[in-house]
Design a protein around this nucleic acid. Sequence first.
DNA 1: ACGCTCGGTTCGATGACTGAACCTATCGTC
DNA 2: GACGATAGGTTCAGTCATCGAACCGAGCGT
Lengths: 175, 175
Amino acid sequence: MALGKDYATQECSIARALEIVGERWTLLVVRDALYGVRRYNDFLVHLGIPRAVLAARLQTLTAEGILEKRRYQESPPRDEYVLTERGIALWPTLRALGAWGREHFTDGRLRYFRHADCGTELGPYGECARCGTIVPVADVLMEPGPGLDPDPVDPISRALLKPRRLLEPMETDQA
Amino acid sequence: MALGKDYATQECSIARALEIVGERWTLLVVRDALYGVRRYNDFLVHLGIPRAVLAARLQTLTAEGILEKRRYQESPPRDEYVLTERGIALWPTLRALGAWGREHFTDGRLRYFRHADCGTELGPYGECARCGTIVPVADVLMEPGPGLDPDPVDPISRALLKPRRLLEPMETDQA
DNA sequence: ACGCTCGGTTCGATGACTGAACCTATCGTC
DNA sequence: GACGATAGGTTCAGTCATCGAACCGAGCGT
């Protein structure tokens, strides 16, 4: 958010948060990371984001400790970007934002989020009404809804047609 | 978000939400509205936002049904911007975002949010642990914390030094 | 008639985003 | 060992949003 004006005068943790994740595309990158996307190229294709912007976002997210860059093979050298604790902690925000967007601006259910242990659909705060608990991110099961119409040329889009747990890494190779 | 590229390809309610409230300053305007700010000039001074940008944000927020423009006196004609249901529904998102920012990027408590009925501090989801309920926005009491250091020339900043309920309109006149 | 406040609009300069092209290293294949 | 493909970027020109300051008009109060 290095624009002439930052939110410096705002003594407010919302403003601080927005300085870090408030830029265009940033929260969508984090969303994809929660969905299990880890590689530069997968982000690129699934988001349709300009390459330069993606590189910039991955760098600042890494610098802020939200993603961690990690080598997963040596030859050829390839890195992946994995969410840290701090990044995973953005799930409630994304959940709330998504619930608001769905409630007010979307028709047709695009995805369902369920408690993997019992199959109950999550409430607006990411809680399981049946178990009476906040569901840990890794126990959230994501399923496609009827309103979903995936892009056939995008392997990530197709991979998201199967029920998956959040954070479970994508297997793009055999896609 | 009328940039060359919108988030059109994203079949996702998070992306839809971000198209509406994802622009710079927008969520801070909504935050101030929750805090009780209603007038153009109060937003202007408290946010330190360029006038043209504020005018644009107020217009799109009104167009999207998040704020409502309402005449509060006839002579001279003056309008105020008040949150609608749809705008108030953004509270959980802002609460989650603020909790994340405070947890990871702020030192010193800036504000406390409590359940007005019982004084218990709100949990990260805006719930009252003691009463076991999600606290309605109008029953949230906001109090200044020790880390707060208000701008003395800004009447809104000073008004926020007193405990206040969310949505309670500001009285800027006698400030 | 004068200045003040409120709520804007206009405008030039700056900076972020976009899309396309280019680049490097490594692999698999012939 | 030349050839093309793939992953992960960087560079660059053009466009669009944001910034800050100036201007504007209606309706006060005096």
